[in-house]
């Protein structure tokens, strides 16, 4: 099928109209959660479906953001991230900013467990969209964002699982911790290559 001038390859990657009303995203997101909820028998099944939806766009977001960064950097240096801390910082700053117009709030490494890291958002915009009914109290719709993060990391060859947890603190009732557990092979590679 030849679409000629309507082909995606004729389109320009730098959009003119790059903004939209946040309510539009909110409405879409709520309906998406509603759809997943009607097809799920438990909270964990619902969170899993949201995770999968997010995962499928992770690689796309990574490639897109790298493209943008490479265009914007003065030296036009083309690069990939090689170390855990670098890719996490990329997510914490560039990717969060691209998706949510702000950087994430904290980036931490677990004290006790070698392969666990955390990206923390005090006020995730996704949580602001949804008011969770009492019977779904344990649900964190940021499972969708956790899926995106997992998709980004997997695509960059930092295989892991990512889950979203509500951990309120200091006047931030919606504070969400994205817990990233890297596969042992990733930690091993990191230690061998970069020796710590």
């Amino acid at each position: 099928m030849n679409l000629g001038k309507n082909s995606i390859y004729e389109k320009n990657l730098s959009r003119r109209n790059s903004e939209i009303n946040i309510s539009s995203l909110s409405f879409l997101f709520c309906e998406m959660v509603s759809y997943c909820h009607s097809n799920s028998k438990s909270i964990s099944e619902l969170e899993n479906k949201l995770n999968i939806l997010g995962y499928s766009i992770g690689a796309k977001i990574l490639e897109l953001n790298c493209y943008r960064e490479n265009i914007l950097t003065i030296k036009k240096q083309l690069k990939r991230e090689l170390k855990i801390i670098e890719i996490l910082q990329f997510i914490h700053t560039v990717i969060w900013k691209n998706l949510f117009s702000k950087m994430a709030d904290e980036l931490e490494k677990s004290q006790d467990i070698a392969n666990e890291f955390m990206v923390i958002d005090n006020n995730p915009i996704i949580s602001q969209f949804i008011s969770v009914p009492r019977e779904l109290k344990q649900l964190n719709c940021n499972a969708f964002v956790a899926g995106i993060v997992e998709g980004v990391l997997d695509a960059a060859y930092f295989q892991c699982t990512v889950t979203a947890h509500t951990v309120p603190r200091d006047g931030h009732p919606l504070r969400t911790v994205f817990l990233i557990k890297f596969d042992p092979a990733v930690i091993e590679r990191e230690n061998i290559r970069y020796g710590y």
């Binding site: 939209i20 995203l25 998406m32």
Partner: peptide
Amino acid sequence: VEKINVELFTLTYGSVVS
């Protein structure tokens, strides 16, 4: 209107349709 980057919206909708 509080605005946000359109990309997340476009990609989310795409994810839903597929």
